[in-house]
């Protein structure tokens, strides 16, 4: 059996400890459906398949999302979207609660040099299919695949 991965990390690492904090009121990824209501052109603006020079505005109906009421408005000029605005979007309250529930203490600042680091998943900006084969994530996945 292969241990998941053991790395000797020579870079200074910061360990942020997240405990089993509760996300009672604003938990992540619940099985709720985030459904935006169908959007209808408002006013007299006609669907634009033709070019215009002044720009036409289409306003969607208000959609209830997990974060609150959202309404989107786009401006189409010469057949292209030239502006996207949101007449209604959730006030800060719901989001603030989420943010605050993730206010974390820094418990440890340490180096991981020569320590075992059992890692389950990698967060990074370079994890694309092109570079996957040589990535740490690939190594993790290989280690755990039957």
């Amino acid at each position: 059996m292969k241990r998941i991965l053991t790395w000797a990390l020579s870079t200074v690492a910061i360990v942020v400890l997240l405990f089993g904090y509760k996300t009672s009121t604003s938990g992540p990824a619940q099985a709720t459906t985030v459904a935006a209501a169908p959007v209808d052109p408002s006013g007299t603006a006609a669907p634009t398949a033709t070019s215009t020079t002044t720009g036409e505005t289409f306003t969607g109906s208000v959609a209830q999302t997990r974060w609150g009421a959202v309404q989107v408005r786009i401006t189409v000029t010469d057949g292209r979207i030239t502006d996207v605005t949101v007449p209604r979007y959730p006030d800060g309250n719901g989001k603030d609660q989420q943010i605050n529930s993730y206010a974390l203490p820094i418990l440890t600042q340490d180096t991981l040099t020569n320590q075992n680091a059992d890692i389950d998943m990698i967060s990074g900006a370079t994890v694309t299919s092109d570079g996957y084969v040589e990535s740490l994530q690939s190594a993790l996945d290989q280690a755990g695949l039957a």
């Binding site: 790395w7 990390l9 020579s10 870079t11 200074v12 690492a13 910061i14 360990v15 942020v16 400890l17 997240l18 405990f19 089993g20 904090y21 996300t23 938990g27 992540p28 991981l112 680091a117 890692i119 990698i122 967060s123 990074g124 370079t126 570079g131 040589e134 990535s135 740490l136």
Partner: peptide, 12 residues
């Protein structure tokens, strides 16, 4: 990309 700068333990 072969190294880590941090480890974040996350329950949820």
């Amino acid at each position: 990309p072969t190294r880590l700068v941090a480890v974040v333990p996350v329950h949820t």
